[in-house]
């Protein structure tokens, strides 16, 4: 059950080994989080995180292996995750994402399909499954990792941006559909985050870290905000950037 500071005791994390998910879970465990299910593709990486969380005092850490590249695995992932938790989930964090290499995606139907499967189809399917569970338990918080890339697509990563755009829009509709049920949705839109996903890229402007994004999420849990930005500043930057004329927008670096 969440406490007066909005801190959960139980959570399911989809995309458990992403840098942002790991940082968030570590911060939550340092507070009240005690029972966690980590869902991800890489059993070894999940196992390492499981060990680290157990060492920091988490009473239950379970692992569910599932591949977001296969949309048919989504219902099973939801069933297995809730079964592994064995109790209502105070929090579900959706942190699955694939940045991809846009140049390589440009002319590849196969790779572009995968981008949308991982960034949109699988997460949305999982969220739909989670929705029913959360409504049945009568409470809970859903946190969906989107991106500022979802605000306006760019040359550098338009498949990723468009994929996140789909998920972001889905999550906002999901939030509206849950009004009055006791279940809430929060969408997190980080700016450029220096993680293993972006290690090969030049740092963008207003670059932030996974830990800083995690801090925004952990603090945000206590608020009623539907959309959270990390760092907070990018909200205002993108409020302007999204209205730039296309000719200018295209020329922006990064």
């Amino acid at each position: 059950m969440r406490d007066a500071f909005g801190q959960p005791q139980s959570a399911i994390v989809f995309g458990g080994t992403s840098d942002i998910a790991q940082a968030t879970v570590r911060q939550l465990v340092a507070k009240r989080l005690d029972r966690v299910v980590l869902v991800g593709r890489n059993a070894t990486a999940l196992g390492e995180l499981q060990q680290a969380l157990t060492n920091s005092g988490c009473s239950t850490v379970e692992i569910v292996v599932s591949d977001a590249a296969d949309p048919h695995s989504a219902p099973r992932a939801v069933d297995d995750a809730f079964a592994a938790l064995g109790q209502p989930a105070d929090l579900v964090l959706m942190a699955v994402g694939l940045l991809g290499d846009q140049r390589a995606n440009d002319d590849s139907a196969e790779r572009t399909a995968e981008m949308f499967t991982v960034n949109t189809t699988w997460p949305a399917a999982v969220l739909a499954g989670v929705r029913g569970r959360m409504v049945a338990q009568g409470y809970g918080q859903l946190v969906v990792l989107s991106s500022v890339a979802a605000i306006r697509t760019r040359r550098a990563n338009y498949a990723y941006g468009a994929g996140k755009m789909g998920l972001d829009g889905y999550a906002r509709g999901l939030a509206a559909s849950l009004a009055g049920t006791g279940v809430t949705v929060q969408i997190v839109r980080p700016g450029f985050v220096t993680t293993k996903m972006t290690a090969h890229l030049d740092k963008g402007p207003f670059a932030t870290t996974a830990d800083a994004v995690a801090t925004v999420i952990v603090k945000g849990l206590a608020t009623k905000s539907t959309v959270l930005y990390a760092p907070g500043m990018v909200k205002f930057v993108f409020a302007i950037l999204r209205h730039l004329p296309e000719a200018l927008w295209r020329r922006l670096p990064g």
């Binding site: 059950m1 969440r2 406490d3 007066a4 500071f5 909005g6 009568g138 409470y139 009055g180 006791g182």
Partner: peptide, 17 residues
């Protein structure tokens, strides 16, 4: 009826019957 209530401290609100 269904309603959202909290304690006197107005922190963690709960929705229930």
């Amino acid at each position: 009826q269904r309603a959202t209530v909290a304690g006197w401290g107005n922190t963690a609100r709960a929705n229930q019957h």
